[in-house]
């Protein structure tokens, strides 16, 4: 039982990490309908961002967010204006090709800038473990989970209770309807892209406190995040969180009780099974027919 609790705790902590990683994708894909296959590489860049800030300023990477968030937002808006805007009305194949191109540019750029070596940030709490009732929880994951909870709370209240948040939800559901009530959809898309990149920044910073970054780390992240977002239901933040938790806990349980070589395989099977029962994901609402 003790072990089971430990597995669940670890699963949930990893789950919050996964949720954090997938949130940016969930927002950008859910709102803009942009199929972003460079998502993992965005996270990779954000990890380097956290690494650089703490390298040069000696600050805790989380404090570095005060610098990274505004930059990420502006980058998101810029990226929307320059690239995403041209893509959203293009066929899906164009999204895939363009964002794959972006992904290679990012990986190659990171290789040139940072070399292929592994980098990470050591904080005073890197090795600290919270030990209670025979359960071990490490501080980097605790802080990561706290960051995730804060971000998710902020995000949900923003989407629910502010005008801009409502507009984002509106635009993601019904672009034409949003135009008809006077919403400048491109402005809202740009804001959503900015917010998406901010989420990615938080996840990158959180990851860099317990993971090492290298230019191709995003490849695995990308598949993981896509599976989470599709599993949870496109455009649903609670869905993304639940999807992340399911996958992380499943990995833990399969790793312990079944077979550690099959963790990835197990969540893939789970993914296919859930999509067979609920094709639009756990929290997905059936798409409206026009």
């Amino acid at each position: 039982m003790e072990i089971f609790i430990q597995l669940i705790i670890n699963g949930c902590l990893t789950g919050t990490t996964y949720a954090l990683m997938a949130l940016g994708l969930s927002i950008i894909f859910g709102t803009l309908g942009l199929i972003n296959f460079a998502h993992g590489d965005f996270i990779m860049l954000a990890m380097y961002g956290g690494f650089l800030i703490s390298l040069f300023s000696g600050m805790d990477p989380y404090l570095g967010l005060f610098i990274m968030l505004p930059i990420s937002f502006v980058l998101g808006v810029g990226l929307y204006r320059v690239l995403f805007k041209r893509l959203i009305d293009a066929p899906e194949e164009a999204h895939i090709i363009a964002t794959f191109g972006l992904s290679f540019v990012f990986q190659y750029g990171a290789m040139l800038l940072f070399s292929a070596e592994y980098k990470s940030v050591s904080t005073d709490y890197s090795a600290d473990v919270f030990h209670i009732w025979n359960q071990y929880i490490d501080y980097p994951h605790i802080y990561g989970a706290m960051a995730a909870v804060i971000l998710i709370a902020l995000l949900i209240s923003f989407l629910r209770y502010t005008n801009t948040g409502r507009a984002i939800r509106a635009v993601s559901e019904q672009r034409r309807g949003a135009m008809m009530i006077g919403i400048n959809v491109h402005k809202i898309y740009a804001i959503a892209a900015g917010i998406g990149l901010c989420c990615i920044a938080v996840s990158g910073v959180s990851l860099i406190t317990f993971e090492s970054v290298h230019p191709t780390i995003g490849v695995h992240f990308n598949l993981l995040c896509w599976i989470i977002v599709v599993l949870g239901g496109i455009g649903s933040i609670p869905g993304t969180i639940v999807g992340a938790m399911i996958i992380a806990v499943l990995e833990m349980l399969v790793g312990y009780y079944f077979e550690p070589t099959l963790t990835t395989f197990a969540y893939f099977i789970m993914f296919l099974a859930i999509l067979m029962i609920r094709p639009s994901g756990i929290f997905g609402i059936k798409e409206r027919r026009a």
């Binding site: 939800r169 509106a170 559901e173 034409r176 309807g177 008809m180 009530i181 006077g182 400048n184």
Partner: peptide, 21 residues
Amino acid sequence: HSIVGMGLSHISGERSIFTKM
């Protein structure tokens, strides 16, 4: 969007309300 701001609103044939809100 700016036309709406001028005071001319449009209700389209496909009802464009936000069903998930």
